[in-house]
Design a protein around this nucleic acid. Sequence first.
DNA 1: CCTTTTATAGTCTGAGTGACTATTAAGGGG
DNA 2: CCCCTTAATAGTCACTCAGACTATAAAAGG
Lengths: 239, 239
Amino acid sequence: MLGYDKHAFEPFAVTVDLAVLTLRAGALHVLLVERGQEPYAGRWALPGGFLLPEESAERAARRELAEETGLADVTGLHLEQLRTYSEPGRDPRMRVVSVAFTALLPDPPEPHAGTDAAEARWVPYDKAQGLAFDHDRILADARERVGAKLEYSCLATAFCPAEFTLGELQQVYETVWGTALDRPNFRRKVLATPGFVEAVPGAARLTGGRGKPAALYRAGPATALHPPLLRTPREGRPA
Amino acid sequence: MLGYDKHAFEPFAVTVDLAVLTLRAGALHVLLVERGQEPYAGRWALPGGFLLPEESAERAARRELAEETGLADVTGLHLEQLRTYSEPGRDPRMRVVSVAFTALLPDPPEPHAGTDAAEARWVPYDKAQGLAFDHDRILADARERVGAKLEYSCLATAFCPAEFTLGELQQVYETVWGTALDRPNFRRKVLATPGFVEAVPGAARLTGGRGKPAALYRAGPATALHPPLLRTPREGRPA
DNA sequence: CCTTTTATAGTCTGAGTGACTATTAAGGGG
DNA sequence: CCCCTTAATAGTCACTCAGACTATAAAAGG
């Protein structure tokens, strides 16, 4: 930040990359685009693009999110900076510094190919491997972060539509964590956390199939979970 | 990431900024440099600098950390990416994208002015306001992040020397959180967490002053705290 | 020797969670 | 129509853990 006149400095290309996650048919999916040209032609990649001259990374990310998903309104969607990837050589053509973001979507709309994307498609997380550039790592970091944030934040509702059942909310946790949760205990925990969810007053109910209809809830005003909803304890993982 | 040939793109200057934190005399301190030239001449700022052409942000941050602290070996220090700041206009001269890092130091060594820093000094966190650029916000974000990570990681030992007493470790929590903790309870919790700390075998003890000498501990192999050591519950803060 | 100071040990209680069982309210098939 | 299945919701029990304490141990100082 100091001494611009004492150091020569290299200009860098700056991009944003988006790990757009959603839940589809009970499985975690990620939005990918197929590359039309070298390098990595024909390979899948995270959507993204260059920062415009008068745009912050956050604005660029939301612009790209709208372009790639084809959604008219992306203002309500959860979009969060993940981290920045700057290894020299991560792009074979030139020095590119990429600010990665994670976006969470409730309902999976059909993706709309952006102006510079050959094709955009929802791909199950487990099949999203061998991506271009260092996008495998970015995607893994995004999933890791989301899984961790489910523990101590109310982020899970970002995967749900405006009104949802507690069973749907529980499925978010189970899908992202890959573990089964006890339904009564989950319910007790969620309802005991003030501001996490609030019941839809009209005693509305939803028929998903056979069983007893479930009450509907909306996301509440809270953003943090105190105390947290912990995953199965495991041994020391990188902090 | 796609279509480099279809979009023109702006070159950006990319820097790293460091929030170097330590505990000195029971208070949180941050390493600041005094700016020698416009803009913000005479104001304090976080240390930082440009990425070299063949250097990742992480490498640049560690290089700057060594330069600014004057320490011969900074390999063991905790250094972690915080987030990237990219608002247009955050630097009045040009478009600068800055990758911010947080570094934690055990013992506060006398800072050594780097080649491009007029002066470097440890400043109490509470007096570090009115910094140049958006460094007030970066510093606040760093403190927020560190405080949160103390809850669910073993990060606190990064503030301590190689061997420390449980009282010193507790002071880390109390200083960063600004709350008092019950000593027996803190001790019970830390010792019950496997891998957090391990006793120095030689029954070594340290005399800090009058009272009973305290046993010495080293940082253990664990990095995560399960279950976490929670702060006083408060209402929904931004996740 | 007694007081002060700090570390360490131990106790008690209530909140929160995991593992269950029971009940309610729907649909479907004979 | 009755029974079976399915899924939501209610409730129980025991164990763990954290907060609030009290008690003891080991040093320094007067």
